[in-house]
Design a protein around this nucleic acid. Sequence first.
DNA 1: CATGAATGAGTGTTCATTCAT
DNA 2: GATGAATGAACACTCATTCAT
Lengths: 217, 217, 217, 217
Amino acid sequence: MGAVKTKRMPRAVREQQMLDAAVQIFGQRGYMAASMDDIAELAGVSKPLVYLYLNSKDDLFTACIRREATALLAAVRLGVVPELPADRQLWDGLLAFFTHTAGHPDAWRVLHLHARTHGERFAAEVTALRAEIVAFVTGLIAAAARDAHRDPDLPEREVAGLAEALVGAAESLAAWANATPGVTARQTTATLMNFAWAGLGSLMEGRQWTPPPPDQP
Amino acid sequence: MGAVKTKRMPRAVREQQMLDAAVQIFGQRGYMAASMDDIAELAGVSKPLVYLYLNSKDDLFTACIRREATALLAAVRLGVVPELPADRQLWDGLLAFFTHTAGHPDAWRVLHLHARTHGERFAAEVTALRAEIVAFVTGLIAAAARDAHRDPDLPEREVAGLAEALVGAAESLAAWANATPGVTARQTTATLMNFAWAGLGSLMEGRQWTPPPPDQP
Amino acid sequence: MGAVKTKRMPRAVREQQMLDAAVQIFGQRGYMAASMDDIAELAGVSKPLVYLYLNSKDDLFTACIRREATALLAAVRLGVVPELPADRQLWDGLLAFFTHTAGHPDAWRVLHLHARTHGERFAAEVTALRAEIVAFVTGLIAAAARDAHRDPDLPEREVAGLAEALVGAAESLAAWANATPGVTARQTTATLMNFAWAGLGSLMEGRQWTPPPPDQP
Amino acid sequence: MGAVKTKRMPRAVREQQMLDAAVQIFGQRGYMAASMDDIAELAGVSKPLVYLYLNSKDDLFTACIRREATALLAAVRLGVVPELPADRQLWDGLLAFFTHTAGHPDAWRVLHLHARTHGERFAAEVTALRAEIVAFVTGLIAAAARDAHRDPDLPEREVAGLAEALVGAAESLAAWANATPGVTARQTTATLMNFAWAGLGSLMEGRQWTPPPPDQP
DNA sequence: CATGAATGAGTGTTCATTCAT
DNA sequence: GATGAATGAACACTCATTCAT
């Protein structure tokens, strides 16, 4: 399945081939278990060339993360139309998200699983991506609250927690959907939308669940 | 900072020390990046002893997973009283879950992050744990639906998806809470309860979010 | 198949059990591949006891060699009656030899294969055994020559070479017979006796064979 | 004493250097006692290069056996002229054999001692070599019998036993000659030829030897 | 531009050997 | 007398990385 061995390609193209191979191997085996030999072979180039272009395993992994994070973010942004209502924006964003992760499972494994597992340097790259998505969702929740003329001072911390939970659920569902054959991105999106929106909506009509008091020893 | 070097301990005790060290190192570095040398050193024993008692890195990792999965499940079961109403059971279960993961962050990383990343053999161990939790949550959702005299035939597939989303959200929140200083287990539980319960509750009063039709090209 | 675990046996008996186990393991696996753990387990004792009685792997191996060399030599001596004619003595000696090696294949492997393969110290033990056997055979050949009133001054060096060849053939045949099912000691003895005594040349009417001159460059 | 450290040699050359070193170390120490570190050092290369070219200790040993078996067989074949009479062929073959084993004592130890001691996989390689030599000798014995117009139906089994004994004697003598200083290949050949062709019985006027009846208990 | 040749440093694993009880 | 507990030292093998060409 490796790239056809063609000679004399421009550097930019060769680099993309290497990144393609690297994402595939990293995604399937993880950072440590992936070997530069295998990546070079899959990319159809010699190992020294990989080092010439990408410097080190570390840098190669970073480049993978950056490329895939950028691509995922772009896909989500492209799917959303800011003029539409908040709920529609959320739907479109989630659909774009699940569609992209379903189309690039190795990339998603790199971002979701492996990048967070090997040192702060890599985790930080992903954290940035995640922060942007959480911010986007946070904005939508706040907007929705405003639209509903409800509780305009919903505490920030609470909103952050809700956004976090929503994004977390989305991430988990993406992995689950990739591992479960026969689940479409639309289905996954619908499940999460129902779960999230109905929940948030009822929140804004004032019904709320009251925790029991802590145990008194 | 490893265990104080005490000599001549009975096997059972030494084994627990080794597992403690292994969970810590595996949790922080991942399976591949963890070295048996480091684990042995942290446990305060020589490497051959680790092999004598735990056989191999593979078996050691499996033993970690099993011990921590069992402990987590026990903690959740201990926190729940089956006679109480479904919502209270869910609260108690989540609180026990977040309390345990907050108290054993490395163990949680092993189960949530690393065990799923290195071969089916390990993943299967965690899948069993997860399946039990999802089943528990699924039961609660169904029970709640019954209690509300609502929609007693809520489609199974839908319930499974919801449970999956809820558990996914919980897992993600556990990792997030561990990485975010100053968040208590109670707060995390409250956030997720609000998110989940209000959402599910409004579902059961029939309000539902309707997806837009697919794009027509 | 290990010895039954009986407690409190006199030292001499325990030692023999250990040597039995050691000969079996050494014979089947060779010196280096044999592990003290396996020997101790097969002997039904704890490892420290093996060290207490036999000191080291080296010494244990030496003890095996000595015991088996002594036993083999004793068997051959017991089979021979010095008053009988030389050819009958040779027959009886060979028969005793092949009978013993067939009955103790592991011991024979230790002596023939493994002892010569691991350092001069061990090889020397076997060389002593072999020297005794070669001397015995040399004596028989000389005696036979005398009995036949033939060539009484057959050069010593020549006799030594012949004895060496005969013993070498016997050693090889012992290994071959052990590895070939259905061959009895009597058959092996007969083959070698015919070969040695009659010779191939007798097939050709007793003509002696004369070597060609060396190549003249 | 190792090869002079020359850098950047073509692969084929390096491989031969490694095999040279491996034969030497394996021959002197045996398979298990030989360490890849020592072989690499003697070959004047780093250990990873040995693995890159020869894959594993197992494969390295196999490669040694194959190379040396092929070389020994080639030497014997080169020494024999099929048009000459059978006895002359045997002489030439034995001389070539002893000359080669004397010139490559480590190789002979690998083939004769170590290859037969470590697992069927290795033993099989040598068995093939041996089978070819035994077949060659068997053919010569049969041819000699035919030439002499004698006993043309000498039973096959008997011929096989004789050939086995002859080859066994040759193998043992090769080891003995290598361990005994001052013995030339010609002398060894002459001894064995006399032994085999004339036989000890010719000393005694061609009398055939008759085995005594088994003991009656 | 591209690569065959080469390695330092580390991995998991095993084994002969010894105490303390 | 006998053993469970423990280890120093080594081994086969791998990998990220770099020159010389």
